[in-house]
Design a binder for these strands. Sequence first.
RNA 1: CGGGGUGUGGCUCAGCUUGGUAGAGCGUCUGGUUCGGGACCAGAAGGCCGGAGGUUCGAAUCCUCUCACUCCGACCA
Length: 572
Amino acid sequence: MRVSQMFIPTLREVPAEAEIASHKLMLRAGLMRKLASGIYSFLPLGYRTFRKVEQIIREEMDRAGAQELIMSALLPAEVYQASGRWDVFGPEMFRLKDRHNRDFCLGPTHEEIFTETVRNETRSYRSLPMTLYQIQTKYRDERRPRFGVMRSREFVMKDAYSFDRDEAGLDISYKKMYEAYCRSFDRCGLDYIVVDADTGAMGGSGSQEFMVKSEIGEAVIAFCEACGYAANDEKAQCVPDHSHKDDCCSAEMPVEKVATPDVRTIEELMNFFKCSSKEFAKTLIYKADGKIVAAMVRGDRELNETKLQNHLGCIELEMADAETVSSITGAAVGFAGPVGLKVELVADLEVAEMKNFVVGANETGYHLKNVNINRDFKASAVIDLRNIVEGDPCPKCGAPVKVAHGIEVGHIFKLGTKYSDALNCVYLDENGKENPMVMGCYGIGVNRTMAAVIEQNNDDNGIIWPMSVAPYHVTVVPVNTTDSLQMEIAEKIYSELQASGVEVILDDRNERPGVKFKDMDLIGIPVRITVGKKAGEGIVEYKLRKAGEVKEFTVEEAIAQAKKEVYSALGK
RNA sequence: CGGGGUGUGGCUCAGCUUGGUAGAGCGUCUGGUUCGGGACCAGAAGGCCGGAGGUUCGAAUCCUCUCACUCCGACCA
């Protein structure tokens, strides 16, 4: 295609709404435009890359034996009502009514629909195992759409569902998907890490997330370079720190009540007591499905709500409001403590290691000193409750872990029989006996994957597409379009590459060379062949977007090199 | 959902405090000079200043309401 004819509305300036590299670049390079908060249109260049990402995923799913189908985005309420998720989703779900006033929604995810479809059509053990997938648009009315296409309200997801006879079968299906995911993300040129994830309220026997390491990632991951352990922070286990065990003050001292007017936060306490935040224990009051519970972590730690939620087995967990806190503790917020508290109390492992620490006195303006677990209060459970932090010992090997942010591009999940039980999706075994199918579900965010590729592959000048997902492989840039010799050579390179199956564009715009170079760098075409001054000698310039240095080739050499470059990168 | 910020031509923004009938740069169009990293000259088009109401002789500017976008937080199968 000739650039003069193409719809590539590049921007010189960064639109004010964009914060992160991929969002800025997707707008500047003319890949997409915003329609409303969290809703985007893909323009031709962006859509080419989008389809390439999609196609890579499709090929790898097919290779793994999964079968593609497509379901409607517009779904009747009944299916979600049957699984109970019509209410669970709440305002996240886009809901609408048809002319008969029947409830519909725009599908936020499709577990129910797949389960129902398979239930209705499949009865025999002979049909299993089976994995189905679709690449389809999802709708979620996110509270806070963010970062362009990273967290949007309309997005395309590849979602796959496996149906097996038993757990052993699920393990095999799951492993195939794991491998397909690795291959997909490898082919997209992503640097990613697979982490153990929390299965949470979904139940199930295991779950992993594919994370692209990036500072802008919303997920926190802990990983160990020594043994390869990696987990989402919701899941990462914290090993208690025993280093305080042998401290000088190991003898339990008598409790002292200390007046601490207006000293509420950990920081204020540190100043008041002149000691480190490790000498305090925080008591946090939560509402778990309406029931009040207290949770304790060391003063310098953050409570991990997922861990608490899993322990309590509750659906909804939120911090209690100030009113509830004072009615439970009898004191203003900031003075809660475990001693004499009349609600269930869960303590972090570390709290059990602490001696003679400071807690709130459940009386406004007072704290208690020299408090000890078991002597002064009892916890209903002592479990891992806190967030892991950089340098904590790895739960597998003990080496210090690293903590990084990640973009979740894929999630694979062993569902077990949660949905098949709920929706009665069963098969008949050899003995004619009914068994629930054992399911797995597997998702990849296509738009998000595309954005993650940009996030990892860019510089000050723009995007640096890996060949596999570049909208075009090669761009031919005649420096001066009024020079007929330059144009002639450029046309020749263009048509020969095109004939060889290389996706090539010709920047025939009558613009100054600087404008064309800037634009081509911005849109990130991997190979640039510049036809300039030395056209008369049959010499052109050859430059890779990612490398920077310019090589001089004859026209034939340049064509051959470009073909080689493209073919080898695509594994042809 | 709580707290902040911003809405002025396609993009980036000024003007608002102290009301007087809308500006710059970039982009676009025309003509010309140019042609190796976002050129120059000349000319032109394009905005009921997010919307509604109010105050006023007069509102982009002040007041009220509302909508949208955005950031921080909470939340996130």
